[in-house]
Design a binder for these strands. Structure first.
Ligand SMILES: [Mn+2]
Ligand SMILES: [Mn+2]
Ligand SMILES: [Zn+2]
Ligand SMILES: [Zn+2]
Lengths: 144, 144
DNA sequence: TGCCATACTGATAACGATTCTCATTTTCAG
DNA sequence: CTGAAAATGAGAATCGTTATCAGTATGGCA
């Protein structure tokens, strides 16, 4: 359960060093909308548009974007990794378990709770992951 | 992203009709702890204990338990489906990113915030995932 | 208690998403 | 313009989960 002993390497966040047509294509395709997309999905759209990019490259680009914070990523209930361009301000997600509709939410309350709780237990440099899942209004009225 | 249109079939919740040693074994193994476990994990533990149960059966049992509400299930960040017995006291985890030490925490503040935030956005049947990561005291003083 | 329709099991094949390989292409500092 | 290294991409390899389907065990019933 404990993370790698983290030898000497500061977990090299292998930042991007060169600019390529493929990477930009993925970035643009993701930015084309504000919803969560899977790697396969992006790969297909890109191909259909004539801007073909290898599937492996799409996966790599998406991961890099997520690592750098330029994109959010989460697991769809189906188990796929999905990505979306991320806003700058710190926020969390409220996702509809039925249609995937997502709302970015914030809250001083959680932030404070996280900080306080961690501190009370002697933890520092706290980070937190918060995801809310529910059923949105349209889906609720429809499915019943 | 959107789930199946749910045609006519009422999603037959095929309830369990017979009692078997395997199903009980999985249920018990899951109940042995209150943390999230993967199917593979349960399968291994069961085997190590001499109560061997086929992997496919473990997957089925876990799914059935989740469908009946006897277990909660979610996707671990690694993408695996993990299950936990339902009805345990609700709590979250505060994990040390260095040594893995984990503390179970609770908080009325987050609970309320989650409920309120979701409601304000028209979402119902809210569930939430909250994980705190930080550096525990021992690790902080050690790595200076 | 014995019978039997079938729910359940499990070894294994099939799947599908993501990652890995590695030869080839592309970028860019010098 | 050159060369070292980053980046790409086709295809193989992983790996968690699901589908098969033949063999087994359960429980209602005679
Ligand atoms: Mn975001
Ligand atoms: Mn909670
Ligand atoms: Zn919805
Ligand atoms: Zn620690």
């Amino acid at each position: 359960m404990a993370t790698d002993p983290d030898p000497g390497t500061p977990a090299a966040p292998r930042a991007r060093e060169r600019s390529t047509r493929q990477f930009e294509a993925v970035r643009d395709e993701l930015a084309r909308g504000d919803d969560f997309r899977s790697a396969q999905d992006i790969h297909a759209s890109l191909g259909a548009r004539g801007t073909a990019v290898g599937l492996a490259t799409v996966y790599r680009a998406l991961q890099t974007l997520a690592d750098s914070g330029a994109a959010d990523s989460l697991r769809s209930p189906a188990g796929q990794a999905v990505y979306r361009v991320c806003g700058q301000v710190h926020h969390h997600h409220l996702v509809c378990r039925s249609c995937g509709r997502t709302v970015e939410v914030q809250g001083l309350a959680v932030e404070r709770w996280a900080e306080k709780t961690a501190g009370a237990n002697g933890f520092s440099d706290v980070e937190h992951t918060v995801e809310l899942t529910g059923t949105c209004t349209p889906c609720r009225t429809t499915s019943s």
